[in-house]
Computed example of a mutant assay.
Amino acid sequence: MSVTVVFLGPLRDMAAQAEMEVPAPLDWQGLLAAVGPDVADQLREARVNVACRGKVLSDKTALDARDGDEVALLPPVSGG
């Protein structure tokens, strides 16, 4: 039983991996512990979003990922 955490954009570089498997279920505190301190610091920023099962969470601290779910970590998008 596991959840796939997908790192996108600069978070991928910080994590030094594109994705990782973590035990299910996964909540906010579990996510912060699993991704390491540098990525966790970024996730605490309001501009970084978290998606679960393909939907961006309005309250990322309410994360409740279950077996087989994908959690995507979405850094802010820049451009013009």
Rank of each mutant, 00 (worst) to 15 (best):
E19I: 06
N49K: 15
R47N: 14
A65M: 02
E21H: 12
V71K: 00
A40K: 11
T4C: 09
G54P: 01
T61F: 01
D64T: 04
G30C: 14
V71Y: 01
L43F: 05
Q42I: 09
T4D: 12
A15P: 03
V3R: 05
K55C: 03
T4G: 01
A51S: 12
A46I: 06
E45R: 15
V56E: 13
A18L: 10
A46N: 03
V48C: 09
T61L: 08
G80Y: 07
T4I: 15
L31C: 04
V3D: 02
M20A: 13
V39P: 08
A15L: 11
A16P: 06
A18S: 09
M1N: 09
V6T: 11
A34I: 05
V56C: 11
G36W: 06
R44Q: 15
C52P: 05
P75R: 08
G80W: 09
L31V: 03
A15T: 01
S58T: 15
A51Q: 05
V39K: 01
L32G: 12
A72E: 02
V35P: 07
A33V: 13
V22T: 14
P23H: 10
A65K: 00
Q29G: 14
L26T: 07
R44S: 10
G36I: 14
P23L: 12
P76E: 03
P37E: 14
V22M: 10
V71N: 00
M20F: 11
T4A: 11
P10S: 11
M1H: 09
E45P: 05
A34S: 10
G80L: 13
S78Q: 03
P75H: 01
L73G: 07
S2I: 04
R66H: 07
L11K: 01
G36D: 14
P23C: 13
K55V: 07
G36Q: 08
P25H: 05
L74N: 13
L11C: 10
R47D: 08
V22I: 09
E45G: 07
D59P: 09
D67W: 03
E19P: 14
W28G: 06
V35R: 05
V71S: 00
D69P: 00
L43H: 12
E70Q: 00
L32P: 08
V39C: 10
L11M: 03
A18I: 06
L63T: 05
V35A: 00
Q17M: 10
E19F: 03
L31P: 05
P75W: 04
V5Q: 01
L73V: 14
D38T: 13
D67E: 07
A72G: 05
V22A: 12
P25R: 15
V5E: 08
L32A: 03
L63R: 07
V6Q: 02
E21T: 15
V48T: 13
S78W: 03
P10C: 04
L74Q: 06
V5P: 14
A16N: 14
P37R: 12
D13K: 11
W28S: 09
P10Q: 10
